[in-house]
Design a protein around this nucleic acid. Structure first.
Ligand code: ZN
Ligand code: ZN
Ligand code: ZN
Ligand code: ZN
Lengths: 144, 144
DNA sequence: ATGCTCATGAGAACCATTCTCGCACAGCGT
DNA sequence: ACGCTGTGCGAGAATGGTTCTCATGAGCAT
């Protein structure tokens, strides 16, 4: 979709990981998908598409990609983890709770807000976790 | 901490739930604790304190209290759910990642920010999830 | 006090995730 | 091109938090 990288890897990605059929297939699949998908979903999708990958491998590869900062993780209310290809810089997500479509948002104000709240209470090393959920325009329209 | 509701329950809590020894003990325990505790922790604490409650009952009671808005839930990175007694109005938490101490924060700005972000992208029924983590002054001091 | 329900609890079931361990293969030096 | 070597793979077992089952026990209205 964003073009420019279907051939040789343009970014050497010096992650020290080996390039295998399984990891390539997983990464390619994630590039085509929009919202957050669970490891189980991804495993099933790979099988459907004729690129069978062991479930344990899917988990290992996803975790490696998260460690390398190539993926975002988001835990749903029922405890299942969702993964999504994303930009490496700090940002948050606006997720459609109906179709799963995701928009990345990066606004300085909320960053400053979090830092200020922590500082006001004497907290150090302040980090934050922010996610916004809603129903996207398309899904609202589809609901008649 | 925000005063005004430490005495008798001001709201009759018309939840339609029965009052049992187990639920009373659990609620009393939660009132004494500060940070977020897992269901397993709470179960162990109740046993230590000589108020044995079945694990399944702890889970059921916690879920019921969450549904009734008497508790806050927070999922840690490893998928375990933490529960904490909290004020019924909408707010967020500032949690010490070292000692677990929690401060409730309620700031209109971040509420407006979330609503605006959703609206700008055409999302309806916008909700949000915001948590701030850090190391509290006491823990920073204790770290020498 | 009586009865109708809902709550309880011990254990099994569930299910996402992680671990085990023998085998395959990507990367690399020759 | 060839072979080494350590990394990655996969099937199944193990783990561990959470939920379900169902027979028994206890609120609460009458
Ligand atoms: Zn949608
Ligand atoms: Zn941020
Ligand atoms: Zn602390
Ligand atoms: Zn809020």
């Amino acid at each position: 979709m964003s073009g420019a990288d279907t051939g040789r890897a343009p970014a050497p990605e010096v992650t020290g990981r080996r390039t295998t059929r399984q990891r390539s297939a997983l990464l390619a699949l994630l590039d085509e998908l929009d919202g957050f998908r669970s490891a189980q979903d991804l495993h099933a999708l790979l099988r459907e598409r004729g690129d069978p990958v062991g479930l344990a491998t899917v988990y290992r590869a996803l975790q490696a990609m998260v460690d390398d900062g190539q993926l975002d993780v988001l835990r749903s209310a029922d405890g299942e983890a969702g993964y999504r290809r994303c930009s490496p810089s700090h940002h948050h997500h606006l997720v459609c709770r109906s179709c799963g479509r995701t928009v990345e948002v990066a606004d300085p104000p909320v960053e400053r807000w979090a830092a200020r709240v922590g500082a006001e209470h004497g907290f150090a090393d302040v980090q934050h976790q922010v996610e916004v959920f809603g129903t996207c325009a398309a899904c609202v329209a589809a609901r008649s």
